[in-house]
Design a protein around this nucleic acid. Sequence first.
DNA 1: GATTTAGATCGTAAATTCACAATATGAATT
DNA 2: AATTCATATTGTGAATTTACGATCTAAATC
Lengths: 130, 130
Amino acid sequence: MNSNDSLEEACCALESLYDDIDVDETVRALTERRRDAATIDGQATVFGALANEHRVRALEALREGELCACELQIVLEAPQSTVATHLRTLRDAGLVKTRKKGKWTYYRVADTAVFDLLDLGAAVDVPGSE
Amino acid sequence: MNSNDSLEEACCALESLYDDIDVDETVRALTERRRDAATIDGQATVFGALANEHRVRALEALREGELCACELQIVLEAPQSTVATHLRTLRDAGLVKTRKKGKWTYYRVADTAVFDLLDLGAAVDVPGSE
DNA sequence: GATTTAGATCGTAAATTCACAATATGAATT
DNA sequence: AATTCATATTGTGAATTTACGATCTAAATC
Protein backbone atom coordinates (compact mmCIF):
# COMPACT_ATOMS: atom_id res chain seq x y z
CA MET A 1 0.00 0.00 0.00
CA ASN A 2 1.39 3.37 -0.94
CA SER A 3 0.93 6.72 0.77
CA ASN A 4 -1.94 7.73 -1.52
CA ASP A 5 -3.88 4.62 -0.62
CA SER A 6 -3.32 5.50 3.03
CA LEU A 7 -4.67 8.99 2.51
CA GLU A 8 -7.72 7.79 0.65
CA GLU A 9 -8.49 5.24 3.32
CA ALA A 10 -8.30 7.90 6.00
CA CYS A 11 -10.48 10.27 4.00
CA CYS A 12 -13.23 7.67 3.81
CA ALA A 13 -13.26 7.62 7.59
CA LEU A 14 -13.44 11.41 7.64
CA GLU A 15 -16.48 11.43 5.39
CA SER A 16 -18.41 9.24 7.76
CA LEU A 17 -17.11 11.06 10.81
CA TYR A 18 -18.61 14.39 9.80
CA ASP A 19 -21.54 14.54 7.47
CA ASP A 20 -21.81 17.21 4.85
CA ILE A 21 -18.04 17.66 4.86
CA ASP A 22 -15.67 19.36 2.48
CA VAL A 23 -12.98 16.69 2.50
CA ASP A 24 -10.40 18.75 0.63
CA GLU A 25 -10.83 21.58 3.10
CA THR A 26 -10.57 19.24 6.08
CA VAL A 27 -7.44 17.62 4.74
CA ARG A 28 -5.98 21.07 4.15
CA ALA A 29 -6.73 22.08 7.75
CA LEU A 30 -5.11 18.89 9.05
CA THR A 31 -2.12 19.46 6.80
CA GLU A 32 -1.72 22.88 8.39
CA ARG A 33 -1.17 21.19 11.71
CA ARG A 34 2.14 19.91 10.38
CA ARG A 35 5.25 21.69 11.64
CA ASP A 36 8.48 22.55 9.92
CA ALA A 37 10.38 19.36 9.09
CA ALA A 38 13.73 20.65 10.38
CA THR A 39 12.22 21.48 13.77
CA ILE A 40 10.59 18.06 14.06
CA ASP A 41 13.89 16.47 13.15
CA GLY A 42 15.72 18.47 15.82
CA GLN A 43 13.17 17.58 18.46
CA ALA A 44 13.40 13.87 17.62
CA THR A 45 17.20 14.07 17.78
CA VAL A 46 17.16 15.77 21.18
CA PHE A 47 14.62 13.36 22.63
CA GLY A 48 16.55 10.45 21.13
CA ALA A 49 19.64 11.57 22.99
CA LEU A 50 17.60 11.68 26.20
CA ALA A 51 16.07 8.27 25.56
CA ASN A 52 18.59 6.18 27.44
CA GLU A 53 19.08 5.48 31.12
CA HIS A 54 22.83 5.98 31.07
CA ARG A 55 22.48 9.33 29.39
CA VAL A 56 19.70 10.54 31.68
CA ARG A 57 21.82 9.49 34.66
CA ALA A 58 24.81 11.39 33.29
CA LEU A 59 22.78 14.57 32.86
CA GLU A 60 21.26 14.21 36.32
CA ALA A 61 24.76 13.94 37.76
CA LEU A 62 25.70 17.18 36.02
CA ARG A 63 23.03 19.14 37.91
CA GLU A 64 25.53 19.85 40.68
CA GLY A 65 28.21 21.03 38.26
CA GLU A 66 30.66 19.80 35.67
CA LEU A 67 32.39 16.44 35.87
CA CYS A 68 35.24 14.94 33.90
CA ALA A 69 34.78 11.76 31.87
CA CYS A 70 36.44 9.59 34.49
CA GLU A 71 34.09 10.87 37.18
CA LEU A 72 31.10 10.17 34.96
CA GLN A 73 32.50 6.70 34.50
CA ILE A 74 32.11 6.15 38.24
CA VAL A 75 28.60 7.62 38.26
CA LEU A 76 27.48 5.44 35.36
CA GLU A 77 29.21 2.22 36.46
CA ALA A 78 30.13 1.38 32.89
CA PRO A 79 33.33 0.81 30.91
CA GLN A 80 35.25 3.75 29.50
CA SER A 81 34.29 3.21 25.85
CA THR A 82 30.62 2.89 26.72
CA VAL A 83 30.65 6.12 28.69
CA ALA A 84 32.57 7.97 25.98
CA THR A 85 30.05 6.88 23.37
CA HIS A 86 27.09 8.10 25.41
CA LEU A 87 28.78 11.41 26.10
CA ARG A 88 29.34 11.87 22.39
CA THR A 89 25.65 11.27 21.72
CA LEU A 90 24.76 13.95 24.28
CA ARG A 91 27.23 16.36 22.72
CA ASP A 92 26.02 15.72 19.17
CA ALA A 93 22.49 16.56 20.30
CA GLY A 94 23.65 19.83 21.84
CA LEU A 95 22.78 18.81 25.39
CA VAL A 96 26.29 19.04 26.86
CA LYS A 97 29.42 21.04 26.17
CA THR A 98 33.00 20.16 26.91
CA ARG A 99 36.08 21.89 28.21
CA LYS A 100 39.53 20.36 27.83
CA LYS A 101 42.14 20.79 30.55
CA GLY A 102 45.31 18.88 29.86
CA LYS A 103 44.47 15.21 29.57
CA TRP A 104 41.01 15.71 31.03
CA THR A 105 37.72 16.53 29.39
CA TYR A 106 35.10 18.20 31.56
CA TYR A 107 31.44 17.90 30.70
CA ARG A 108 28.74 20.37 31.59
CA VAL A 109 25.14 20.82 30.55
CA ALA A 110 24.86 23.17 27.56
CA ASP A 111 21.93 25.09 29.01
CA THR A 112 19.86 24.94 32.19
CA ALA A 113 16.85 24.20 29.97
CA VAL A 114 18.18 20.65 29.95
CA PHE A 115 17.28 20.39 33.64
CA ASP A 116 13.79 21.63 32.84
CA LEU A 117 13.53 18.87 30.25
CA LEU A 118 14.64 16.29 32.81
CA ASP A 119 12.15 17.63 35.36
CA LEU A 120 9.24 17.58 32.92
CA GLY A 121 10.18 14.08 31.81
CA ALA A 122 10.23 12.93 35.42
CA ALA A 123 6.84 14.53 36.10
CA VAL A 124 5.01 12.52 33.45
CA ASP A 125 2.95 9.76 34.98
CA VAL A 126 3.86 6.62 33.03
CA PRO A 127 0.95 4.16 33.37
CA GLY A 128 1.74 0.82 34.95
CA SER A 129 5.12 1.78 36.35
CA GLU A 130 3.98 1.93 40.01
CA MET B 1 36.28 -6.43 31.66
CA ASN B 2 33.74 -6.43 34.47
CA SER B 3 32.19 -3.51 36.30
CA ASN B 4 34.79 -3.65 39.08
CA ASP B 5 37.60 -3.32 36.59
CA SER B 6 35.82 -0.30 35.17
CA LEU B 7 35.56 1.28 38.58
CA GLU B 8 39.18 0.66 39.38
CA GLU B 9 40.29 2.08 36.06
CA ALA B 10 38.28 5.24 36.69
CA CYS B 11 39.61 5.56 40.21
CA CYS B 12 43.20 5.56 38.93
CA ALA B 13 42.27 8.56 36.83
CA LEU B 14 40.74 10.23 39.86
CA GLU B 15 43.91 9.78 41.88
CA SER B 16 45.95 11.64 39.31
CA LEU B 17 43.25 14.26 38.78
CA TYR B 18 43.34 15.46 42.37
CA ASP B 19 46.39 14.98 44.51
CA ASP B 20 46.08 14.09 48.15
CA ILE B 21 42.65 12.62 47.54
CA ASP B 22 40.44 10.38 49.62
CA VAL B 23 39.30 8.12 46.79
CA ASP B 24 36.64 6.33 48.81
CA GLU B 25 35.13 9.65 49.84
CA THR B 26 35.19 10.96 46.26
CA VAL B 27 33.55 7.82 44.92
CA ARG B 28 30.92 8.13 47.64
CA ALA B 29 30.21 11.73 46.64
CA LEU B 30 29.89 10.74 42.98
CA THR B 31 27.64 7.85 43.92
CA GLU B 32 25.37 10.35 45.70
CA ARG B 33 24.81 12.05 42.37
CA ARG B 34 22.86 9.00 41.23
CA ARG B 35 19.09 9.34 41.20
CA ASP B 36 16.35 6.90 42.00
CA ALA B 37 16.35 4.08 39.44
CA ALA B 38 12.57 4.15 38.91
CA THR B 39 12.64 7.86 38.09
CA ILE B 40 15.48 7.44 35.61
CA ASP B 41 13.59 4.58 34.02
CA GLY B 42 10.44 6.70 33.68
CA GLN B 43 12.36 9.59 32.17
CA ALA B 44 14.03 7.29 29.61
CA THR B 45 10.63 5.81 28.72
CA VAL B 46 9.05 9.22 28.22
CA PHE B 47 11.94 10.53 26.15
CA GLY B 48 11.97 7.28 24.17
CA ALA B 49 8.33 7.85 23.26
CA LEU B 50 9.22 11.36 22.09
CA ALA B 51 12.22 10.13 20.11
CA ASN B 52 10.51 9.65 16.78
CA GLU B 53 9.48 12.07 14.07
CA HIS B 54 6.05 10.57 13.56
CA ARG B 55 5.28 10.75 17.24
CA VAL B 56 6.55 14.32 17.63
CA ARG B 57 4.46 15.33 14.65
CA ALA B 58 1.38 13.69 16.15
CA LEU B 59 1.82 15.54 19.44
CA GLU B 60 2.42 18.83 17.64
CA ALA B 61 -0.84 18.31 15.75
CA LEU B 62 -2.63 17.84 19.06
CA ARG B 63 -1.70 21.34 20.25
CA GLU B 64 -4.85 22.70 18.68
CA GLY B 65 -7.08 20.09 20.26
CA GLU B 66 -7.99 16.43 20.10
CA LEU B 67 -8.04 14.44 16.87
CA CYS B 68 -9.33 10.99 16.03
CA ALA B 69 -7.01 8.28 14.73
CA CYS B 70 -8.12 8.77 11.13
CA GLU B 71 -7.34 12.47 11.28
CA LEU B 72 -3.91 11.74 12.68
CA GLN B 73 -3.44 9.33 9.82
CA ILE B 74 -3.80 12.26 7.42
CA VAL B 75 -1.44 14.43 9.46
CA LEU B 76 1.21 11.71 9.61
CA GLU B 77 0.89 10.52 6.01
CA ALA B 78 1.39 6.92 7.05
CA PRO B 79 -0.61 3.68 6.87
CA GLN B 80 -3.21 2.93 9.50
CA SER B 81 -1.27 0.22 11.32
CA THR B 82 1.81 2.40 11.50
CA VAL B 83 -0.13 5.29 13.00
CA ALA B 84 -1.96 3.04 15.46
CA THR B 85 1.36 1.61 16.69
CA HIS B 86 2.86 5.06 17.29
CA LEU B 87 -0.24 6.21 19.12
CA ARG B 88 -0.01 3.20 21.38
CA THR B 89 3.61 4.04 22.20
CA LEU B 90 2.55 7.57 23.16
CA ARG B 91 -0.26 6.22 25.30
CA ASP B 92 1.96 3.68 27.04
CA ALA B 93 4.34 6.47 27.98
CA GLY B 94 1.51 8.52 29.47
CA LEU B 95 1.81 11.32 26.91
CA VAL B 96 -1.67 11.03 25.43
CA LYS B 97 -5.08 9.90 26.62
CA THR B 98 -7.97 8.55 24.59
CA ARG B 99 -11.71 8.93 24.48
CA LYS B 100 -13.89 6.47 22.61
CA LYS B 101 -17.00 7.62 20.80
CA GLY B 102 -18.69 4.87 18.85
CA LYS B 103 -16.27 3.53 16.30
CA TRP B 104 -13.90 6.45 16.75
CA THR B 105 -11.03 6.96 19.15
CA TYR B 106 -10.08 10.53 19.95
CA TYR B 107 -6.57 11.32 21.10
CA ARG B 108 -5.55 14.26 23.27
CA VAL B 109 -2.41 15.20 25.11
CA ALA B 110 -2.46 13.91 28.69
CA ASP B 111 -1.16 17.16 30.16
CA THR B 112 -0.11 20.54 28.82
CA ALA B 113 3.36 19.81 30.21
CA VAL B 114 3.80 17.76 27.04
CA PHE B 115 3.77 20.99 25.03
CA ASP B 116 6.43 22.42 27.34
CA LEU B 117 8.52 19.34 26.63
CA LEU B 118 8.07 19.83 22.89
CA ASP B 119 8.98 23.50 23.18
CA LEU B 120 12.11 22.84 25.22
CA GLY B 121 13.14 20.11 22.81
CA ALA B 122 12.69 22.49 19.88
CA ALA B 123 14.72 25.19 21.62
CA VAL B 124 17.86 23.08 21.95
CA ASP B 125 20.47 24.09 19.43
CA VAL B 126 21.58 20.84 17.77
CA PRO B 127 25.09 21.40 16.37
CA GLY B 128 25.52 20.95 12.63
CA SER B 129 21.83 21.03 11.77
CA GLU B 130 21.90 24.56 10.28
C1' DG C 1 61.89 10.94 22.50
C1' DA C 2 59.84 7.03 24.98
C1' DT C 3 56.26 6.01 28.05
C1' DT C 4 52.14 6.68 30.50
C1' DT C 5 47.55 7.95 30.67
C1' DA C 6 42.64 10.21 29.69
C1' DG C 7 39.64 9.89 26.50
C1' DA C 8 37.92 9.19 21.55
C1' DT C 9 36.94 6.16 17.84
C1' DC C 10 36.32 1.72 15.45
C1' DG C 11 34.36 -2.85 14.72
C1' DT C 12 30.87 -5.98 15.51
C1' DA C 13 27.58 -8.92 17.81
C1' DA C 14 23.30 -8.51 20.35
C1' DA C 15 19.23 -6.10 21.42
C1' DT C 16 15.76 -2.87 20.29
C1' DT C 17 12.87 -0.25 17.31
C1' DC C 18 10.67 0.41 12.96
C1' DA C 19 7.43 -0.03 8.96
C1' DC C 20 3.61 -2.10 7.48
C1' DA C 21 0.75 -6.12 5.56
C1' DA C 22 -2.32 -9.30 7.50
C1' DT C 23 -5.52 -10.18 10.76
C1' DA C 24 -8.47 -9.43 14.79
C1' DT C 25 -11.91 -6.74 17.47
C1' DG C 26 -15.82 -4.33 18.47
C1' DA C 27 -19.34 -0.79 17.47
C1' DA C 28 -22.80 0.61 14.11
C1' DT C 29 -25.66 -0.29 10.40
C1' DT C 30 -28.28 -3.32 7.39
C1' DA D 1 -26.99 -11.98 12.52
C1' DA D 2 -24.43 -10.47 8.68
C1' DT D 3 -21.85 -6.79 7.04
C1' DT D 4 -19.29 -2.61 7.25
C1' DC D 5 -16.08 0.26 9.02
C1' DA D 6 -12.63 2.48 12.57
C1' DT D 7 -9.11 1.05 15.05
C1' DA D 8 -6.01 -2.33 17.51
C1' DT D 9 -2.89 -6.13 17.48
C1' DT D 10 0.29 -9.44 15.51
C1' DG D 11 4.08 -11.08 12.79
C1' DT D 12 8.29 -10.31 10.51
C1' DG D 13 12.05 -8.53 7.85
C1' DA D 14 14.83 -4.28 7.88
C1' DA D 15 17.03 -0.53 10.12
C1' DT D 16 18.84 1.53 14.17
C1' DT D 17 20.85 1.51 18.67
C1' DT D 18 23.56 -0.51 22.21
C1' DA D 19 27.51 -2.61 24.72
C1' DC D 20 32.08 -2.93 24.96
C1' DG D 21 36.87 -4.86 23.62
C1' DA D 22 40.46 -3.25 20.74
C1' DT D 23 42.79 0.40 18.96
C1' DC D 24 44.09 5.15 18.20
C1' DT D 25 45.27 10.04 19.70
C1' DA D 26 47.12 13.61 22.13
C1' DA D 27 48.81 15.65 26.42
C1' DA D 28 51.87 15.04 30.32
C1' DT D 29 55.74 13.01 32.46
C1' DC D 30 60.02 10.65 32.67
